[in-house]
Design a protein around this nucleic acid. Structure first.
Lengths: 145, 145
DNA sequence: TATTGTTATACTCTATAACTATA
DNA sequence: TATAGTTATAGAGTATAACAATA
């Protein structure tokens, strides 16, 4: 029996993580820190609480990631306009540049991956992946309560 | 524009990792340790060098994972029959049980995921994933040298 | 009283470098 | 001289619990 959806997705996951870690390394960013930048880039300046919710991680964890991103010049902690307890995590120009390049690389890889798929299979592949991701999302949400 | 292959794969990867971590937790296994058990289960008793190569990780890292698996009763270090420098990592009955259940869960999830895909799309989905994984493998291998 | 972020502490995974015992 | 594994050290990511400041 050839590998099923599960095996293929697992393998793809591993490879994607490897590839992303490799491409981030020269910029001095880890996957976890990139994830924070990505969340701020889509979604705008965010409180650490919001980031914790979006990355499904503890607030304490965000404190550490933001500390590192501040130290390396990718984000700043700005005062929240209406809540003096909170901060607004904001991207620096350096981070905006990284994100712009990331979006381009991202699009290039999407094209490259789709290019190796038989044109007749492309629509079905995307539909199938959508369905699978939706089911997985439901499973995980359900388990998380 | 709806999400492309890349986004869908990334999302699926994240969800799969979450789901696997969740299902392993009650058994007292982390993803990295499970990965070791999996490599020994398929492939038979292994030296730590072989495991390091298969998991693409340093030998020192394997020492730590094996230490933890020995301490929790999932593997034993047996003497290598012909090389007195090496050891053979072997699964305990407890680990064999865990693996048997894992294989069942694995098959169940594969079926469950495929079930939500339109039957007319299934073959194309598998072909497409195969092609994408092959391309990703080539990209990563090429980058690794 | 509830929420935002931080200090304190700890565990897991990972890496490099130096060392030992054996090949 | 090269290989298998370990000791020593370090850093990143993650978690819980207790605490301060503010809402």
């Amino acid at each position: 029996m050839s590998p099923g959806v599960f095996d293929l997705l697992l393998r793809a996951a591993d490879l994607l993580n490897r590839d992303m870690a490799r491409s981030l390394e020269p910029v001095g960013l880890s996957p976890a820190r990139m994830h924070v930048l990505w969340a701020v880039h889509h979604g705008g300046p965010a409180s650490q609480q919001r980031l914790a919710r979006e990355l499904a991680v503890t607030p304490r964890n965000i404190t550490g990631l933001v500390d590192a991103l501040v130290a390396t010049g990718f984000v700043t902690r700005e005062p929240h306009p209406t809540d003096r307890r909170a901060v607004l995590i904001t991207l620096t120009p350096a981070a905006e540049e990284v994100m712009a390049r990331s979006v381009r690389d991202h699009a290039a890889l999407t094209e490259e991956l789709l290019a190796v798929v038989d044109p007749a299979d492309r629509a079905a592949l995307l539909r199938g992946l959508h369905a699978v991701v939706a089911r997985l999302t439901a499973l995980v949400d359900e388990a998380a309560g």
